[in-house]
């Protein structure tokens, strides 16, 4: 691998009070493309994202982003450095309008400014029609679009996605697959944390599996799609596409 990784997670340990959630997670992400972190409920997927964005600071270990140590930075500084988050449960600012939600995070960067309000409205035309509407009045799918748009307008180098398909209709999920593929094509780096195996295999190139607070498996998405045994063991589900090779 000649590329320098955009994000390196080095044996981080994160706690909620006394509970030891992440127990030495190692990850490395290359620039460009989407990486998915899979795992069952309660293995620490969201905690991983929260550690990356800075909502929870790991007690041990280091997080390197574009070569510099961001382990102790507060979230705002990490966003400044080029991270952006699409959080679990969307967490759009409900009392702000669509437009104001985008203004809350919009920032220009020296080298590239791809996403401005117009850009995301082209990507999500529904949002343009509802720009003056309070975000709490949007439908679930529209709120998810807004959450993604809100993260995009900060023009991040790495976009963190925490279960973006949660609670969405199948047609909306298909829409998201299209959008994420488009972002990947444009060279956006994405880190997806998912329970939905099929969705992750559809959009990601590389996958990690998290179990009980550590990374237990790593391969390309293609490889994982052909390993129902791994899927069953660590995720308890299987796409069932291939039979077990005997």
């Amino acid at each position: 691998m000649a590329q320098t990784p955009i994000l390196t997670v080095n044996r981080i340990h994160t706690y909620y009070g006394q509970s030891h959630i992440l127990q030495g997670v190692d990850l490395s992400l290359n620039e460009r493309g989407m990486v998915a972190v899979l795992g069952r409920n309660g293995v620490g997927k969201t905690t991983l994202i929260r550690s990356l964005i800075g909502f929870n600071i790991p007690r041990e270990g280091r997080i390197l982003f574009k070569g510099s140590d961001i382990t102790q930075l507060d979230p705002a500084r990490r966003v400044e450095a080029g991270l952006a988050l699409v959080p679990q449960g969307r967490r759009i600012f409900g009392s702000l309008t669509v437009e104001e939600n985008l203004l809350s995070s919009a920032r220009k960067r020296a080298k590239k400014t791809v996403w401005d309000q117009n850009g995301v409205f082209t990507l999500f035309p529904q949002l343009r029609d509802r720009r003056k509407v309070r975000a709490s009045h949007l439908s679930g799918g529209e709120q998810q679009m807004l959450a993604i748009a809100r993260a995009l307008v900060s023009n991040p180098d790495l976009l963190l996605l925490d279960e973006p398909t949660e609670g969405l209709s199948p047609s909306m999920v298909r829409e998201l697959i299209k959008i994420f593929s488009e972002l990947e094509r444009e060279g956006q780096s994405l880190l997806l944390v998912e329970q939905n195996l099929k969705f992750a295999l559809d959009v990601a190139e590389h996958v990690f599996i998290l179990s009980r607070g550590t990374v237990v498996y790593e391969s390309t998405a293609l490889d994982l799609s052909q390993r129902p045994d791994v899927q069953l063991e660590h995720l308890g589900v299987s796409t069932g596409a291939k039979e077990l090779p005997r």
Binding site: F55, P75, V79, P87, R91, G94, S105, A151
Partner: peptide, 10 residues
């Protein structure tokens, strides 16, 4: 609205 998320958008 959401103090934590506000830090998360910078």
């Amino acid at each position: 609205d959401d103090g934590e998320m506000a830090t998360g958008v910078g």
